[in-house]
Design a protein around this nucleic acid. Structure first.
Length: 545
RNA sequence: GCCCCCGUAGCUCAGCUGGAUAGAGCAGCGGACUUCUAAUCCGCAGGUCCCUGGUUCGAAUCCAGGCGGGGGCGCCA
């Protein structure tokens, strides 16, 4: 990786200039905003100044000399600027070599960056199977899936998991609602009112007379099937659909005990529970939670938290290195108890990630509308996809940080669909495909094999090379910060940079020795990288538009 | 009362493990189609980075305290 070479040369130069390795390690190597500040700039001298002593500008000059002697012809020149920045101007040959590196990596460019590959469980969506998915779930789905794609691409082993809440009182309410519809009666006030309930009732022949427990399970199965189909159409596919109910049933894996009991036994062994006023409590406050939490009520019923903790233990016993939960904003109050539960079970919280998705607010005529499943009034994932399509929807939901609320004005979204930046990115991809088509596959292969080290580069070509080189770091950052939106921002920037190159540099039929070769190479690298970035977001990369 | 998120251009938001003259998309205004795909491009206009104080060579970014908006705090699921 050309940037790594540059970075290590910089580190050596800093040490040779009398600095310590630690400060050199912290030094930035970044693309300045202004072209006259070089291809890359470093603040290393300002970091070294306190330990070396002396003016940062003098230190920068010394580091510059050391760097020049190490990089030779790869480096055109260095400049000391401002308070002590060292600006690096790299040669055309360096850029050409960097491009060759990108081309060699092909569609694996940017992949495998994980320093220590982990087995990661990403649990997301996990919406109750009592209604269709709404746009809030869609955001959760797009986010969890994009994160999963990023981790997998980085070299981690990812399991996408959906926790199905198929146990407890809301299932009883669903059953009652379905039965009421089947009998043509009014749905109970605390039941589910949406039209989908009728559809479920119609799909179960004897819904009017079926015993409620059985009806509930049949209804859940239908709802899960529907949810799975919606998500599949959205490009989100789960590896594991985990049943909450199974936590309360005897498990062969546990020699016939049920997982909840197993978890209670485990917690008792670790002395994490106690009885008080006929209830069983978890010592969660000993692990940073606000207070202790009830696992078994005085009535003998298990709390929902009991299921959660049994489920968490099950995940731990499956041997994951990291558990990630993508939770809705209304669950942020659970963070404390979930972390406490994890620790109570002997886990190290650094291996636990509780990610809170902020809301998607629906806006209608300038007013915020509420989304309530009980009232049956909400925009479903299916509605959204019917209106604006998978690509626009995924982009829309992924272009913002997960911790900012998004306003969704469906009228506006419909209107502005064609203004969605996703089309700009896709268009750039299609345009490159068209250029490469025009050149022809044979010509392109020949170009990729050609030696371009002596070609003089246009500034737009250099800019494109540098933008491409940023991709691995963007992936790493998107993963480390759990921020898929970094990838969409990058994809847009890369497309803009390509378009500027396309405007300034004729590709097919370009004059000069090796010029067309190099430009075709740039096209291939840009197309591959755009396609990869879009792929990580679950957005398609069309050849034509 | 306690906790979480947000506050940056007219709007929606990037940028936040400190760096040089703060960015993008949309909206607005003015231009460019005989094309390698105009779903594009070029130009103009647009800012108290919520406020106050602190940290330092340097703060949109870090710290403290406010203000404003959103949300959560159950032996519900």
């Amino acid at each position: 990786m050309p940037l790594d070479v540059l970075r290590s040369a910089l580190r050596e130069a800093a040490i040779a200039a009398g600095g310590d390795g630690q400060a050199a390690e912290r030094a930035t190597l970044e693309r300045p905003k202004r072209d006259d500040h070089g291809d890359y700039a470093t603040n290393v001298a300002m970091l070294l100044a306190p330990t070396i002593g002396g003016p940062p500008r003098d230190i920068a000059a010394k580091v510059g000399e050391e760097l020049q002697s190490r990089l030779g012809a790869q480096l055109d020149r260095v400049e000391v600027a401002g308070p002590g920045f060292l600006n690096l101007f790299l040669s055309d040959a360096w850029h050409a070599a960097a491009l060759a590196h990108v081309l060699e990596a092909g569609d694996r460019f940017g992949s495998g960056g994980a320093a220590a590959p982990e087995r990661i469980n990403v649990e997301f969506v996990s919406a109750n199977p009592t209604g269709p998915l709404h746009v809030g779930h869609a955001r959760n789905a797009a986010y969890g899936d994009a994160l999963s794609r990023i981790y997998a691409f980085s070299g981690h082993e990812v399991t996408r998991e959906y926790y199905v809440n198929d146990y407890g009182s809301q299932i009883a309410r669903l059953a009652e609602s379905v039965q009421a519809r089947a009998r043509g009666e009014a749905v109970p006030e605390d039941g589910y009112q949406g039209d989908y309930v009728q559809a479920v009732a119609d799909a179960i022949p004897d819904a009017a007379t079926l015993e409620l427990g059985e009806l509930g399970q049949r209804a859940v199965a239908l709802m899960v099937e529907r949810i799975r189909d919606s998500l599949h159409f959205f490009g989100v596919n789960f590896d594991v659909w985990f049943s909450e109910r199974s936590l309360h049933e005897p498990s062969a894996k546990l020699d016939g005990t049920d997982p909840v009991t197993h978890a209670f036994e485990r917690l008792a062994e670790l002395d994490q529970t106690y009885a008080h006023e006929d209830a069983l409590w978890l010592r969660s406050s000993a692990h940073g939670d606000d207070k202790d939490r009830v696992l078994v009520r005085s009535t003998g019923e298990h709390t929902y938290f009991a299921s959660d903790i049994a489920y968490m233990l099950d995940k731990q016993e499956r041997g994951f290195d990291r558990l990630m939960y993508v939770l809705g904003a209304d669950h942020h109050g659970y963070k404390g108890r979930m972390a406490a539960a994890f620790e109570s079970l002997g886990g190290d919280v650094s291996a636990l990630d509780l990610l809170i998705m902020q809301f998607v607010h629906l806006v209608e005529r300038g007013e915020r509308a509420s989304m309530s499943k009980r009232s049956g009034e909400f925009v479903t994932l299916d509605d959204l996809l019917a209106e604006i399509g998978v690509d626009a929807a995924r982009w829309f939901l992924l272009q913002r940080s997960h911790d900012t609320t998004i306003d969704l004005d469906l009228d506006l979204a419909r209107e502005q669909t064609n203004e969605n930046p996703v089309y700009y990115v896709q268009y750039a991809h299609a345009r490159i495909s068209s250029v490469l088509d025009k050149a022809g596959a044979e010509r392109v292969s020949a170009a990729l094999a050609a030696d371009t080290s002596a070609v003089a580069l246009h500034p737009s070509e250099k800019a494109l090379v540098k933008k491409l080189l940023m991709f691995p770091a963007e992936i790493e950052e998107a993963g480390a910060k759990r921020a898929p939106h970094r990838i969409s921002a990058y994809a847009l920037e890369l497309s803009q940079t390509f378009t500027a190159f396309y405007r300034d540099c004729k590709v097919v039929g370009a004059e000069g020795d090796g010029v067309e070769d190099l430009r075709l190479g740039l096209c291939v690298a840009a197309r591959t990288t755009i396609a990869t970035a879009l792929g990580l977001l679950g957005v398609s990369a069309p050849e034509t538009m």
